[in-house]
Design a protein around this nucleic acid. Structure first.
Lengths: 199, 199
DNA sequence: GTCTATAGTGCGATAGAC
DNA sequence: GTCTATCGCACTATAGAC
């Protein structure tokens, strides 16, 4: 009889791709490298992912999915306190920047590596960032922000600055001001953002 | 006697390199493309720049130099008003993001494309961003900021967020909040940042 | 394995200043 | 014509996608 297809091959490729792409960047990693790392054959790799472009897109989609799960875990304990959820989210970002495993935000980085708006990995990256922005807006509405759209965009500025400066200048560069700056933005737009009594 | 060396060759290569690298990213542009665009011969190109890495570093250095000239012009009219200089600088960033010629910040982008801390183009990029941060700190001191280091880092967050979100999400995304957010930061740290009378 | 593209080298031909 | 900067092309070797 024929050999059964090994389960989890796709997952294994995705895991290796994630490690290599996020560390070294997409363009710096060849398909051969994926093959060497996973031990998977070329034919199988190309059966799972028709092209490198498609693999990149699948990696971004997969990371996006994982990210939302992690974000839900982080904000879960602050159910019913949208401002607290926003701060918890920022704290989550800040932690990830401090990790030795942080090599920059894959959504910003992949967009920066591929400028063609049609490039699948960029399309997925942009989608992720838009979703994040919209989530912040929704939380802003729940928190009673005077202008949730403005607040969401201002917070995206802080997040983008945190992630990108964190990669280039390190966690003790501008990144260290992410939490205070996010709180400043939150105070600007929300009636009683955090456990702050009026002065 | 002999043929004179054509003047401005190096400049011409640098100009073409700047156009292509900033638009498409460094890794996406081949040396052959530079040769085609400039009409320069391969041997001459490699005489001016011993390697692509060196060309990239020279391009970043050159752009850095140009940037500081432009920044001086922008802040010049606000001599003696350091808070005004900071706002003018932020306005300058915001304008560049709105330009149709904006393809993202070359310093953040190049750092994101090359993760090796030793890569010359990254070294130059990091240097540029550090200088910018230090300049903001110096302006903060002149403006009487309560904590100029914190303020400089917070402003770097806004700038990084502006430039990177501007490239990915467009000038009417989070980028539009750059000026209000910078003003918010400035008000937080400076006694009388802009023409703001106490309420 | 195949085919393409890349960085980088080197040489002969040519263009131009004297 | 002489001399040289520069171009254009052929070439290697490596790495890439598929």
């Amino acid at each position: 009889m024929a050999r059964k297809p090994a389960p989890g091959t796709r997952r294994r490729i995705l895991t290796a791709a994630s490690r290599l792409f996020s560390r070294q960047g997409v363009r710096a990693v060849g398909m051969q490298q994926l093959i060497d790392e996973t031990g998977v054959g070329k034919s199988l790799l190309y059966r799972e992912f028709a092209s490198k472009d498609e693999l990149v897109a699948a990696w971004i989609r997969d990371s996006d999915e994982e990210w939302w799960k992690a974000a839900a875990e982080v904000t879960g304990p602050h159910q019913g306190d949208p401002a607290g959820q926003i701060l918890a989210l920022l704290g989550f970002f800040y932690e990830s920047v401090q990790s030795p495993e942080f090599y920059g935000c894959i959504y910003y980085n992949t967009s920066s590596e591929f400028r063609d708006p049609q490039y699948p990995g960029r399309v997925e990256s942009v989608r992720h960032l838009r979703r994040l922005r919209d989530w912040l807006r929704d939380l802003g509405i729940l928190a009673g922000a005077s202008d949730a759209e403005d607040m969401a965009d201002a917070l995206m500025l802080v997040i983008g600055g945190l992630l990108n400066n964190g990669e280039v200048l390190g966690a003790d560069g501008p990144a260290r001001m992410a939490m205070p700056t996010a709180e400043l933005v939150l105070r600007q737009y929300c009636p009683a953002p955090v456990g702050a009594g009026s002065a």
